[in-house]
Design a protein around this nucleic acid. Sequence first.
DNA 1: TGTATAATTTGAACATGTTCAATACACCCA
DNA 2: TGGGTGTATTGAACATGTTCAAATTATACA
Lengths: 240, 240
Amino acid sequence: MFNTPTASPKAQLTRSHILSTALRVFRERGLEASTMRELASAAGASLGSAYYYFPSKEAIIQAYYDDVQAEHARRVAAALVETRLDLKDRLGAAFHSKLDILQGDRKLLSALFRYSGEPQHPLSVLGHGTRKNRQQSMSVFLTAIGDQRLPDDIRAILPAALWALHMGILLYFIYDDSPEQQRTRRLVDGVLTLLVRLLALVRLSVLKPIRGSLLALLQDSGLLPEPDSPQVLLIQESQP
Amino acid sequence: MFNTPTASPKAQLTRSHILSTALRVFRERGLEASTMRELASAAGASLGSAYYYFPSKEAIIQAYYDDVQAEHARRVAAALVETRLDLKDRLGAAFHSKLDILQGDRKLLSALFRYSGEPQHPLSVLGHGTRKNRQQSMSVFLTAIGDQRLPDDIRAILPAALWALHMGILLYFIYDDSPEQQRTRRLVDGVLTLLVRLLALVRLSVLKPIRGSLLALLQDSGLLPEPDSPQVLLIQESQP
DNA sequence: TGTATAATTTGAACATGTTCAATACACCCA
DNA sequence: TGGGTGTATTGAACATGTTCAAATTATACA
């Protein structure tokens, strides 16, 4: 809204100032404990002004998450300039860099899941309003997959599967009270090791028919984004 | 609180009257649109009285979900008296009966996912406060598995895996706008067909080592309930 | 420069979930 | 029957997210 190039530089500045102080307050006091009035006055703005730049309190957190995503894309791209990495390391870079970014902000993360059960809500992680985010996130994973030699059906499934896996990992991360969330790190490594082994096995002829059925099932269910065009995510309309 | 046998019969009655009228209002007007004041007066009670029986608005929905769970257990038990059903049919009964119960109430379902990202919240689907619910739900799936011949590691994983799958299906169900959510029904059938085929293949020697790693990983991550004793769910404390 | 139009800022007002102290009621027992 | 104890009920008061009409400030253009 005000982070687009069309907005005045001043407005962009105000917006980002409100955003950054809000994040500081959130980190200090927690999400619930920080009131919109506090956020506004901490930024030296009025309540109404805060609402001029952000349609809701949750929207502030969503804006934070947009930034996280951009930073994630940057970091993964940076990690992938090293071309000698194998698939596991590339995926590891994708997962771990996300966790690195979010490390101190697990509280902020909780808000992301709040509307996951509400299809109509603009901030639902699975809804229309966040489609762009999912696409971007999947394209990061696609980048990590790179030109790895993989069967076509696996290739079709993998980005969405990795995105779903990554959401699950984030949930685990939120609930992980081990020191510095080392447990989540180990889980990521374990899952990826397993995944890579599975991808090697998946070429076996005994597994071929299952693979086919799986792809068909996911496609029929609309759980895969469309092949090339702007990816549509999660439950697509039934065919007319 | 007041549905325990220790509460006076009158209190239990009042509580269940408030609950049932609240559900009617929720169904008519939606969750957000129904205010606590409306719910109370629709039940002929005062606002304070509603709060005497339910600690929060969400708690009313949670109470509904408790009832759903009890009904689910009943229906699955009833379906399983027919002993000639194979695994797929038994699991199908478990999944479909759940959907049958929830068919008209997808709006109510959304609330269940609202706190999934908040470990401390009593109503988090993944948190401490709902552990009992998860245990019950898993034991329903365990019942459906029955004495099916299965490797031990698979047996250890399956209830939790089915619970997780079922949560995913519920999400799909909420987002499914096909007529009468037929799409979700097809997804269930497809997934179960695939699962049963996979369970047959899993005995192959090529897959054995992967199976072992998977079990170890899930155990290390605390994602499996403990073997027999009162099941602890999702991320358990790290070992001392 | 002066004015019109748009962008931004403001805080009062509102809606609603929740709390709580005060009150009424019911039941038990001497 | 009367009184006492715990149960149940009440609605006013509160906190906070959100809305909005009005006021202010910036920008564009003649």
